[in-house]
Simulated assay, not measured.
Amino acid sequence: MASLAAVHGLDVPEKVVACLGFGVDAFHGVNHTQVLENLAALEREGGYLGAFSLSRATGPGSLYLDAVAHAREETPAHPSIVHGSIAAAVRGEFGDVRFTDRTRGSELFINPLMSIHFAVDLDALARRSLYLDRIEDTVLMRQIAAVIEAFREEVTPRPPRRSRTSAGMLGLLMGNAGTGVRAMVIAMSLTGRERRILAEIELALEREDPELAQRVAAINKIESDGNAFPHACGDRLRMWALAHVWMIFSVGGLLIVLLLLAVLTT
């Protein structure tokens, strides 16, 4: 954002933003459903310049892979997750690809969209920013982060639109990756704060009560098997029982205690 604001203030004839690595920053709260929505808005305004792929079969693609490999050799303790993800996509890898211990404990979704450059007119993009003027007097990165966080506290983010049709179509195109694609579409429709809270809850649940975490995972598996509205009574009953297992045990224990008291008092 600092670079965008700085270049926006320059009086030069050609100013272009080329964005590579679509989907990499989902872990940090970037909502890529809204990224696509904003690209569509820029197209309507004449600010979208098109897209092109970084292919390993081209000179630039080959040089990029060499540069990423060299940087990793020079900084083995702290390799770039962003460039590692993009390089994996350029090589044709897919899914939860492991290339550094820094991603341990998280699930990646390496995919071909990461190797595509999306190009837009810089001034058109800057005009769509609602807080760019607030960072003009900042000097440090943490000051910019504080300004952005303060702005986010002032507004109510609009929930993105969800599309089952998109998930289904991507599943057909991706074949066996359909479940992973559906999970990605659902994750993309959450805000960054919701995604972080959900991840913290799941991690805490896994630490404190592994058995309950397994039951929650079972419920999630039932809900993600492609049949969101089970018609069979048995499926609905099983889902309800899994979700209310502690209540069932509590009621059962209470009934046993009442029966014992009834026997002892007669």
Rank of each mutant, 00 (worst) to 15 (best):
P230A: 10
R104K: 10
H28V: 03
L49N: 08
L63D: 09
A124Q: 08
V68L: 12
L255E: 05
R215F: 00
V216D: 00
G29A: 04
R196G: 03
E74R: 15
G21C: 04
L205H: 02
M247W: 13
V7Q: 01
R162G: 06
W246M: 08
P112L: 10
L170H: 07
A124F: 05
H231R: 11
L4E: 10
L122T: 01
I86L: 01
G234R: 15
Y64Q: 01
E43F: 07
H32K: 04
R127I: 00
R91N: 11
T58C: 02
D66K: 14
M174P: 00
G29T: 01
A187F: 03
E223P: 00
E208D: 10
L113I: 06
A243M: 05
W240P: 00
A51E: 06
F249I: 08
R161G: 13
E74I: 01
A199P: 06
H28C: 15
D101V: 11
R207F: 09
E93Q: 15
H117K: 05
I222Y: 06
E107W: 06
R98S: 14
H8C: 13
P160W: 03
A57Y: 04
L113T: 11
P157H: 06
P159F: 02
H28Q: 09
I219Q: 06
H28W: 11
P60Y: 04
S80N: 06
R44C: 03
A199L: 02
S163R: 12
A145V: 11
D25L: 10
L20K: 01
P160A: 14
M247D: 15
M239L: 15
M169K: 03
A145Y: 10
A67Q: 14
I81E: 08
F118H: 13
F229D: 13
M169Y: 05
L132T: 02
M114S: 05
A18P: 07
G105I: 12
V97D: 09
